[in-house]
């Protein structure tokens, strides 16, 4: 059974009387431990799709099963629960909490899961180690480079060991050198720990890291290399 199973999923926005089909009757299934790149022109619905897969937004129509559970009609609280337990997010702008240091940022999802202080710290340190930033644990985001901040954000997404990691243009704010380092890191993590990665990217180099690239156009899957 696929980990994520989207059937004829739609998300439409109404903007000034005009209907925008951000995601339109889209079919997609993603297996466990896959490393999937989502590409497509601006406005093709990549972010919207990721928000749906991560239960940040709910579809207007269609069915979306995560881990066998139908999520299309779930309440806000239930969707929060799924995000907390099954999903890790990596954002383009890193989105670390500026007043928290690296390890405190990484602990955050564990805190929301109700882990004890010791447990939180232990697992956050493991996650930081995986992204190679153990020595920066006490540093604030403002004291780190963009590449380092994004690695902290990856550690945060991984800390609770979610089944799915969703990344929306995670390299968008990084230079080419950092971009390939980061993509390599994500691929290594995918290989070593078997989590499912869905990565939205404009970087053509990503095809060197994965054999599955999904291309979107106008809210639909234009091509799927799988």
């Amino acid at each position: 059974m696929a980990l994520i199973e989207a059937r004829r999923v739609s998300k439409h926005y109404r903007l000034g009387g005009q209907e925008i089909k951000a995601v339109d009757e889209l079919d997609l299934s993603i297996d466990r431990a896959e490393f999937l790149a989502v590409m497509g022109p601006s406005g093709s619905g990549k972010t919207t799709l990721l928000n749906l897969l991560g239960c940040l937004a709910s579809p207007d129509k269609g069915s979306l099963k995560i881990d066998g559970e139908e999520t299309a009609a779930l309440s806000k609280a239930m969707r929060t629960k799924i995000r907390r337990e099954k999903v890790g997010f990596i954002f383009q702008e890193f989105n670390l909490i500026p007043i928290l240091n690296a390890v405190e940022n990484v602990e955050l999802p564990l805190k929301y899961q109700g882990a004890t202080k010791d447990e939180r710290r232990r697992r956050a340190n493991i996650a930081l180690e995986r992204v190679g930033l153990s020595e920066r644990a006490k540093h604030k985001p403002s004291q780190m480079s963009g590449g380092e901040q994004q690695r902290v954000a990856i550690a945060r997404a991984l800390a609770a060991e979610p089944a799915i990691v969703l990344a929306d243009e995670p390299t968008g704010e990084l230079d080419t050198e950092n971009t390939s380092k980061l993509l390599e890191l994500l691929k290594d993590l995918n290989r070593d720990f078997g989590q499912t990665f869905v990565i939205v990217t404009h970087d053509p180099a990503v095809s060197g890291f994965t054999n599955r690239v999904v291309r979107l156009r106008d809210g639909k899957v234009e091509s799927d290399s799988a």
């Binding site: 991560g54 940040l56 609280a77 929060t80 629960k81 995000r83 907390r84 337990e85 890790g88 997010f89 954002f91 989105n95 909490i97 955050l108 999802p109 929301y112 899961q113 945060r156 997404a157 609770a160």
Partner: peptide, 16 residues
């Protein structure tokens, strides 16, 4: 707002 959005995205519930 943005920080709150991040927290909600990574699993903060209403009470948090």
């Amino acid at each position: 707002k943005r920080e709150i959005g991040v927290k909600k995205a990574i699993g903060a519930d209403t009470s948090a």
